[in-house]
């Protein structure tokens, strides 16, 4: 008798004859990624008068499980560009390798100027759009932060559909709902950027990271933050949220096991 798993629950060959194996196939069209697997949550970024600040926490979640706690989601491309990745981590790793090979090619000649943030955003949005057009998207939402061709602050996003967007403040994922309104209070439009100092921008972004940690269950309190100015990229990858206050949690009603 056939004890192989594929025969379980099937009519016995010795009684009913050989089973037509074509029935085993669940014929369906090719399917590419339908959902992300291991994910990173929000990336937040804000322009200030001399550059851009960008931050993302160091967590990679597997569903609701906090699976990896030292994942660096801000990737430095060169001395004037940082890319922040939200969404699928393996797709992020693929893009990281892609950017790595691009950087190697760009540096064959040291006499040419390297790609700036605007160039890189154009490139990445084409990559994202190509993949979505192949029905095989890279499941990410990217923020590209840095300087453009005129050494002015540059911040733009590209998502898994190839959609692009630019604004003085940007946030992906949960941050788009929670951090964006907070940042817009300080930096409502492009003109407001001129009044924002580096320290203002850093504390604004840090504040957003804190709010996100309070309310986003897929976030953590260890994060990376990068500041891109003409002086270069200042990237720290082991920041911790300071002065947390969970007092507000006491007033939340309707969740968990409290009685009233």
């Amino acid at each position: 008798m056939n004890h192989l798993p594929q025969a379980w629950g099937r009519p016995r060959d010795d009684v009913y004859g050989a089973y037509d194996p074509s029935h085993f196939q669940n014929a369906a069209p090719n399917q590419h990624t339908q959902s992300p697997i291991v994910t990173g949550t929000s990336v937040v970024a804000a322009k200030f008068k001399d550059g851009v600040v960008i931050a993302a926490d160091n967590l990679a979640s597997y569903g609701s499980l906090a699976r990896f706690t030292d994942v660096k989601r801000l990737r430095k491309f060169n001395d004037e560009v940082v890319v922040g990745f939200g969404g699928d981590v393996s797709d992020m790793q693929y893009l990281d390798r892609l950017l790595n090979s691009l950087d190697i090619r760009e540096n064959y000649s040291n006499t040419e100027s390297s790609l700036n943030a605007k160039n890189l955003h154009t490139y990445l949005s084409k990559v994202m759009y190509k993949r979505r057009s192949d029905f095989n998207p890279l499941w990410n939402h990217l923020l590209i932060a840095g300087l453009d061709g005129d050494a002015k602050p540059f911040l733009a996003s590209a998502d898994l559909l190839g959609t692009t967007f630019s604004s003085p403040t940007l946030a992906t994922g949960f941050g788009a709902h929670l951090a964006q309104p907070i940042m817009r209070r300080t930096i409502p439009d492009e003109a407001a950027v001129q009044n924002v100092s580096k320290d203002d921008a850093i504390s604004l972004v840090k504040e957003c990271m804190k709010v996100l940690f309070y309310r986003d269950a897929r976030s953590m309190d260890k994060y990376s933050i990068a500041i891109i100015t003409k002086a270069g990229v200042e990237l720290t990858e082991d920041e911790r949220l300071e002065n947390q206050s969970w007092a507000f949690a006491e007033s939340i009603r309707g969740y968990g096991t409290q009685v009233n």
Partner: peptide, 12 residues
């Protein structure tokens, strides 16, 4: 110009 929004360097 399309992929990088960059004028191709002449050396390239």
């Amino acid at each position: 110009r399309l992929t990088y929004d960059r004028a191709i360097p002449l050396s390239e």
